[in-house]
Design a protein around this nucleic acid. Structure first.
Lengths: 165, 165
DNA sequence: TATTGTTATACTCTATAACTATA
DNA sequence: TATAGTTATAGAGTATAACAATA
């Protein structure tokens, strides 16, 4: 298994990526759909991390919290598959969210090997505020687009991500 | 300085990320522009790495080679800024490309501290084939879109990336 | 003083493989 | 035998800080 974080996307202290440095020729890069997506991803990632810094939440952590909240008794292996990471990575992720007081492992009744993941009361409460912050961030990212363009964008990206997306 | 690789984007052996696991509720994630971009980025990154595996070229390395080829005597510090990484990271990147026989450091005449980056003859030749492979990969990623939709997509992503993009 | 390239060091995130306890 | 969660280990990529040479 495995999915993908892009190891060579700027991961560090997200701060000041300039998608188009003045005076520089980008050649074929400017014509590629993939490079356009990459540029946008970097800019969005940076803003996301900065915006959610008060909660120490990354895009991946937000995805995990959201999926856990919307799917009762989600198992760790399922979470790993959804996020596209190895099970060992999911363990560390859940450990971190548990240490933050957001997630807890509940013993599964039908399978004593497994746990059902669930938000704690604090997790439920904070996720509400976190989700509001994320949505505000997302609106800011799309502020250069009309409502119709934003819908078009998500539709086109879905087509790129694949038939099943 | 710094820019951004997304540390929590699947970075590993890109292989089988499913942007929409059956039976799973994604909640608000399905409505976010940011998550749509993230999903597409993961899928595209995986395919890129697989396609370019014969050359051991990642998106970042391709960006570097392209920018170096299109901007004579590019300095290492400029490259770092363009890619959104620290200078120390650019050193390792150029080291790798040099070890692959693609890039060389040419002493700068006007500034004896600096080097001008340049492709080697092998770099020029291989970049041609690499670029063809990348373009084919990119067309495949956009194969679900009409030519007009693909143009729309890059236009909308440019708006997201920011005014200067 | 400031900047260029470099190095040393550490951090984060990831994967693979092996282990345990169940199924 | 196969699977769920875990742990150990290693790798890739990044950043910060300091350094020498030069501006």
């Amino acid at each position: 298994m495995s999915a993908h974080a892009d190891p060579d996307l700027p991961a560090g202290p997200a701060d000041d990526f300039d998608p188009h440095v003045p005076g520089i020729e980008y050649g074929v890069l400017d014509t590629l759909v993939g490079y356009s997506v990459r540029r946008a991803q970097i800019v969005i990632y940076e803003d996301f991390v900065l915006t959610l810094a008060p909660w120490n939440i990354t895009p991946q952590r937000f995805s995990a919290l959201t999926v856990i909240s919307r799917n009762d008794h989600l198992k760790l292996t399922q979470l790993a598959r959804i996020l596209g990471i190895a099970r060992s990575g999911a363990v560390l992720l859940v450990d971190a969210l548990a240490a933050m007081g957001y997630v807890e492992r509940q013993p599964s009744v039908e399978d004593r090997r497994a746990y059902g993941l669930a938000l704690t009361p604090k997790g439920v409460a904070d996720l509400k505020a976190i989700t509001e912050a994320v949505c505000e961030h997302d609106r800011r990212m799309a502020s250069g687009l009309s409502a119709d363009e934003a819908r078009q964008l998500t539709r086109l990206l879905r087509l790129v991500a694949g038939p099943r997306a």
